[in-house]
Design a protein around this nucleic acid. Sequence first.
DNA 1: CGGATAATTGAACATTGCTCAATAAATATA
DNA 2: TATATTTATTGAGCAATGTTCAATTATCCG
Lengths: 195, 195
Amino acid sequence: MARRSDHSRAELEELILAAGEAHLAEAGFAAFSAREVAKRVGYSIGTIYNLFGSYDRLVLALNARTLRAWAAFLEARLQAGGEDRIATLIHGYFDFAAENRNRWMALYDHRMADKGPLPDDFNVAFAALVALLQRQVAAVRGGGADAEILALTGSLVAIAHGHCMFELNGTYEMFGDWRPRDAALARIREALAAA
Amino acid sequence: MARRSDHSRAELEELILAAGEAHLAEAGFAAFSAREVAKRVGYSIGTIYNLFGSYDRLVLALNARTLRAWAAFLEARLQAGGEDRIATLIHGYFDFAAENRNRWMALYDHRMADKGPLPDDFNVAFAALVALLQRQVAAVRGGGADAEILALTGSLVAIAHGHCMFELNGTYEMFGDWRPRDAALARIREALAAA
DNA sequence: CGGATAATTGAACATTGCTCAATAAATATA
DNA sequence: TATATTTATTGAGCAATGTTCAATTATCCG
């Protein structure tokens, strides 16, 4: 058909990403398929490959979107006030993951076939999220070298990640009756107190 | 062909799992395929389905093996002496994951299509690993209610998991120059000191 | 209007998980 | 031993996937 003027390239990309996001959210990463996305936007599979080049890059574009949404979500929570910024961040972290289960999981489920460099798109989104978190850790800690704060941020995020993953995939149940979210907050508090 | 007497059912299962383990270790979970395993053992794809029932159950059987190997690895490290059991465990945790990258990753990459109950096989292996860790945490902490120690164990494992995952998938690089393994040990020490 | 350019298509290919009638081998029965 | 029964094994066939690319269709420009 070749409906070249129906949408600009940018519009079409947006259409595809929106449909892809919905499909990913509904089906989960394991069942996600580029052909299903094509079906949803009413374009052929070839068009998707023209725009994104490969399955991996389509997923990466969706993951970049998820990272931006996550950062915006956390920013909104922070702006909504609340004395305790660390608690706000942890709850934002867990709430976003819970409310966007499949999209959040896809961030970690996806493994690139050929492990070349990631798209700028994705790296920028990731860096923005890291910067947001680093700013809050720096604020809580008062002073300290940038590199030290960045590394501490990495460690605190790793704590949150491990607990959040256990909560979402059910692993936590093997350890009896506890709430990974509360535990994550407690561990992070202890780490900050010791730092 | 129907070489009914070449191997007993148990022997054949073992052959398939050994070949599957090698394939998984070489190719990684994303490229793992039941057909490739069949090719490697010289049986048809149908035979694999007769024995394991589905792709998911084959992967689960392999993951159960990985869990048992991991527990044995940790047990050996603990028996090899070393005053500091927590450090021994953390290094064992990270070393096993690093030396068995693809198999360790498969533990978390795999998502069942239909989320029914896990095979006993798998649950038993997982429970044994948890029990091993719980015993060490209990020893370090001295006293305390079982439920409390189990929950603490879960939280400490979550810390290790998050840091180990970041190290293996490269996420840690976004946080500058640090060693997730050392950070994990530090965080766990802080948590134990605070408990 | 006509030729160059760009977007879009979808058939074709290799590969996957999965099923199941057909076949071959081992065992039980007569 | 010969025949019947049970069991193990096969692999072609199905639907679905990611990927490619010549052919087709729309748009633009002179």
